[in-house]
Design a protein around this nucleic acid. Structure first.
Length: 689
DNA sequence: CTGACCTGT
């Protein structure tokens, strides 16, 4: 059982742990915080309490290397508060990359302190602000929310200490935040930073925060904290994990994973198995193989898939306790690497790959590809076997490959993403020299220049690459992709903001359609009930109207193959966008069914994604106007096989062909109307056919 | 004639 549970006392319950994963803690002893004192003192972090406080006092930046179960996330903010860092109206902030982690860590800390959540201890995530400006002293928040807060308070002046947790994950928001915090430190020497990171990244974090691009010798060494970061290592509470490697390279990792599971089951003592694969297809194939191969063992195995697209009820199955005499086998994507922690896992099988998204600034296309993982990822996966008792990890690659060929770290998201949103955020914070910005991991100049070009073409940046007023500031203010923001701004001129905000909300979620194996046909039929001749964006409006008319019924969604949770999110985003739009002076107005103005507003944001059907094309070949790239309408679009002459797409997925997803038909004259500078006269030049 | 790794404002 879990290390926090005293057998025979109370039943364990599930809450998030400090890695943002799920772990069994003992049930709360009572409503008072008294009972936590001894529990807190047994955490590894407690031994370092004095050291942590001393280092934070004397150093501008402290890097805490803390492994699983060290208690750093829940304890350090409390130590800081106890030492007086939250006095005089100041606050202690602690950021997390994920919403769930923010909520659970905040409620855990409130419980330990014996205070009501939302008073002394609070949290803020999108759509949810559980803080009290008068009372809150310790605030947990996503790093994305803290970035948004900077737009109102660029120096984050209400915080005395900012702890950035899980910095080794190198998410886009974390890296932007780190770059900006380094800048803030120069203006606010009294501010303290705590960066929490895994071992591998600690040194690069330290050198990032020590290196100064300013003139040396200016620093005032007699007063204030030391500028060179301190590094403190706190041991974790993970159990040892024994490693096993393939003797030879594996050609079919799905088959290898399944046979490894079978031999674990036949030869090893009880304990659940977690298998890391790359995606839904892998997982379905592996489960099919295993159930075919192991019908004899059927009564003993509970085989479950786990990926984010799975309905919530199916996801919850993996958390139910394994009955006595049975063994759970979970086939999972990367979701189990950082986002969720499964209790009871003793054996991990690691295929050595994951799906990763790479952005190509030359083609402006994102590619989702199966790629080898890094050593850091492999260690993280292996560590999932050592939370309950000593575990075993089976790597489906050779030890030689691990040592000599696997790269130490993954490529930070910053270096493989479209940077349009990132650049506009920095511009809104007054960072003029984007190319010279001091990033924790510099993105390629090509990606930055592409982002600047896109923003310039949207009229968001002027000739001096400064944010335009008011358009640039308005686009930065709306919490969606800049092209979507631009579309919302344009909707004000066309008198269709209600419709366009709904479309913007739908475009901001993964997919509103519910797709599962074997029901594609029913899904296609359901789609036809909502399909609009103008294209997918107008179809979304029909779906949303139906959802509202059904009074947001989950049953209605189910019957129409629509993802209820996605629609709830659409509704929340829509409400947020309406509030922001009103604040920016946009009139909320419906065009009452005039879809031409809606399509014009879409064009105003997405003119750069215009395509023309090739003359005499029999297979639906389009070419983009901007760069003559060959593209096709995705079969999931309502315009598939309709093939209007002129279309605009929202995004491209690249497989063997490049497919446009979410397509709307337009009139080419709207392009020159929306972006004369962008198209000039290239549209109507006759081309030889 | 077919795609959805994971996050976040």
């Amino acid at each position: 059982m879990s290390r926090f549970w005293k057998p025979g006392t109370e039943k364990p319950r599930i809450v998030e742990d400090e890695e943002g994963g799920i772990l069994f803690y003992s049930a709360s002893p009572s409503s008072s915080g008294q009972g936590y004192e001894s529990l807190r003192q047994r955490l590894p972090a407690y031994k370092y309490r004095t050291d942590i406080l001393y280092l934070v006092e004397t150093h501008a930046t402290t890097i805490v290397v803390g492994e699983t179960g060290s208690g750093k996330t829940t304890q350090i903010p409390q130590y800081l508060k106890e030492a007086g860092w939250a006095e005089g109206g100041r606050m202690i902030a602690c950021t997390q990359p994920r919403r769930l982690a923010v909520q659970s860590v905040a409620s855990r800390v409130a419980e330990e302190m014996g205070v009501k959540l939302g008073e002394e201890v609070g949290y803020t995530i999108r759509f949810e602000d559980i803080t009290n400006p008068e009372l809150t002293r310790i605030k947990f928040l996503t790093d994305g929310v803290l970035l948004r807060e900077m737009m109102d308070d660029p120096l984050l002046s209400k915080y005395s200490v900012i702890m950035v947790d899980e910095a080794h994950e190198r998410s886009l928001a974390t890296d932007i935040l780190l770059g900006l915090l380094k800048k803030i430190q120069r203006r606010r020497p009294e501010l303290r930073l705590i960066i929490s990171s895994a071992t591998i990244e600690a040194k690069s974090m330290a050198s990032f925060f020590s290196a100064s691009r300013r003139i040396h010798g200016r620093e005032d060494e007699e007063h204030g904290p030391r500028k060179v970061p301190a590094i403190l290592s706190v041991e974790g509470r993970g159990f040892t994990v024994q490693m096993f490697y393939s003797e030879e390279p594996v050609s079919d990792y799905i088959r290898a994973a399944v046979s490894t599971v079978i031999s674990i089951h036949d030869e090893e003592r009880m304990g659940d198995v977690l298998v890391f694969l790359t995606g839904q297809d892998d997982i379905d194939a592996a489960i099919q193989l295993l159930t075919e191969d192991s019908h004899k063992r059927k009564q003993e195995l509970i085989v479950l898939p786990l990926y984010s697209g799975l309905p919530r009820a199916d996801q919850d199955l993996v958390f139910s306790p394994t009955p006595r005499g049975k063994r759970k086998v979970i086939f999972s994507t990367n979701i189990a690497e950082t986002s969720l922690t499964l209790e009871g896992v003793v054996y991990v099988v690691d295929c050595g790959f994951s799906k990763q998204c790479f952005y190509n600034p030359m083609t402006d296309i994102e590619n989702l590809v199966v790629a080898p993982i890094s050593k850091a990822s492999a260690r993280q996966r292996a560590g999932r076997a050592g939370r309950v008792r000593p575990g075993k990890c089976y790597r489906l690659y050779t030890e030689e490959y691990f040592i000599n060929e696997m790269s130490a770290d993954g490529i930070p998201e910053m270096q493989r993403s479209n940077l349009v949103s990132c650049v506009i955020q920095l511009k809104a914070l007054g960072i003029d020299n984007i190319l010279g910005f001091d990033w924790p991991a510099s993105p390629s100049p090509e990606a930055l220049i592409r982002a600047l070009e896109v923003l310039y073409s949207l009229g968001v940046l002027d000739d001096d690459a400064k944010l335009t007023s008011p358009a640039g500031f308005q686009v930065a203010e709306i919490p969606v992709d800049p092209m979507v923001s631009k579309m919302i701004l344009a909707s004000n001129d066309y008198g269709c903001s209600e419709e366009v905000i709904t479309i913007a909300a739908v475009l901001s979620v993964q997919s509103i359609w519910f797709s599962a194996r074997g029901v594609q046909k029913q899904l296609d039929e359901a789609k036809l009930r909502f399909a609009a001749a103008e294209g997918d964006h107008v179809t979304f409006l029909n779906v949303y109207r139906g959802f509202i008319e059904s009074r947001k019924s989950s049953n209605w969604c189910h019957k129409n193959h629509i993802n209820y949770h996605a629609m709830k999110k659409v509704d929340e985003i829509r409400q947020q966008l309406r509030r922001v739009a009103q604040r920016l002076g946009i009139t909320l107005k419906s065009c009452e069914g005039d879809m031409e103005v809606v399509r014009k507003a879409v064009t105003a944001g997405f003119f750069a994604n215009a395509c023309r059907l090739e003359a005499f094309s029999h297979n639906g070949l389009y070419k983009t106007i901007r760069s003559s790239q060959e593209v096709y309408i995705h079969p999931s679009s309502v315009l598939f096989r309709v093939n209007p002459k002129w279309v605009i797409f929202h995004s491209i997925v690249s497989t063997d062909r490049r497919y446009m997803r979410n397509v709307i038909s337009i009139d080419p004259s709207w392009l020159t109307e929306a972006a004369p500078h962008f198209y000039q006269n290239q549209l109507f030049n006759p081309r030889p056919h």
